[in-house]
């Protein structure tokens, strides 16, 4: 009987917290409806209509999903480069002391420059096509993955390396069977950071010059005082970004079951 009451209390507590979470979201929407009914701020309905309107009168030949796809494509191309090259480079820096001594100052200098500061230079060199935009996103997405991988590999516990030594792991086994798995949670954190950083940078790059993408929609909305368009683009980018975060968390859970099962 006692156990039942404890369980019940536990469940009530959980339900209470869930209600709190739902309440905050409902509160935000309520506030939005209230403000938009008393001012010129667009209502949720306005934004829905703006989206429908975009299907009839696309902007630069694309509806909202077209623009979303354009941004997505840039981010994915840039990230696939960041994640392969950045991972390899991070391993190199973390594992090889000579490489670290030689390359780390250069990388630190590169990292100290915010990615957006590259935009003018890259625009001067490569114009405003697709390639320079992707390059800027790479500038934003690369540092987090490199830094995290390097730190994860370099900080592998001496105890784990001793286990490798005792059981005669060779240099390659030390890296792939011990250092890399022990760094995996740091690497995954780097992957997540590089993704959010890539989104920030792609929007900025598109806002400064371009004919497609969500960033372009936002700056177009600003130029034409089209508030529903701005909000529509913001909601679109927010939703996609949230979906990606959920997907990555799922991948993390599948790839690192031992992190999850810590009770």
């Amino acid at each position: 009987m006692k156990i039942m009451t404890v369980k019940k209390r536990e469940r009530h507590k959980n339900t209470f917290y869930q209600i709190l979470s739902v309440a905050s979201v409902l509160g935000l929407i309520g506030l939005w409806i209230y403000i938009s009914s008393t001012s010129r701020f667009p209502t949720p309905g306005d934004i829905w209509e703006r989206m429908i309107k975009m299907f009839q009168y696309p902007i630069k030949g694309k509806n909202i999903f077209g623009h979303l796809l354009a941004s997505l494509q840039r981010v994915m191309i840039a990230l696939s480069f960041c994640w392969t090259f950045g991972l390899a480079f991070g391993i190199l820096l973390g594992w090889n002391q000579k490489c670290r001594a030689f390359l780390e100052p250069l990388f630190s200098a590169f990292r100290a420059v915010p990615p957006l500061a590259w935009i003018p230079l890259i625009t001067l060199w490569f114009g405003i096509g697709e390639f320079p935009k992707i390059l800027i996103v790479i500038m934003g997405g690369l540092p987090p993955i490199v830094v995290n991988t390097q730190a994860g590999i370099a900080n592998v516990q001496q105890l784990y390396l001793d286990v490798g030594t005792i059981f005669h792991a060779n240099r390659r086994q030390m890296l792939f069977q011990i250092a890399l798995p022990s760094a995996l949670d740091a690497v995954l954190a780097g992957i997540k950071n590089s993704m959010s950083s890539a989104w920030v940078v792609v929007l900025a790059a598109e806002m400064l010059g371009g004919k497609s993408g969500v960033g372009f929609l936002i700056s177009r909305g600003m130029d034409s005082m089209d508030m529903p368009l701005i909000l529509l683009a913001m909601i679109a980018i927010g939703s996609v970004s949230a979906l990606f975060a959920i997907a990555l968390n799922t991948i993390e859970r599948i790839a690192c079951p031992w992190l999850l099962k810590k009770k």
């Binding site: 490798g164 059981f167 005669h168």
Partner: peptide, 21 residues
């Protein structure tokens, strides 16, 4: 200090030395 490899299951931990060999 135990020094099991946390990313490996029990059987993989036990087989670790054999795998390295």
């Amino acid at each position: 200090r135990l020094a099991l490899l946390p990313w490996m299951t029990v059987i993989d931990n036990v087989a670790f030395g054999l795998r390295m060999a």
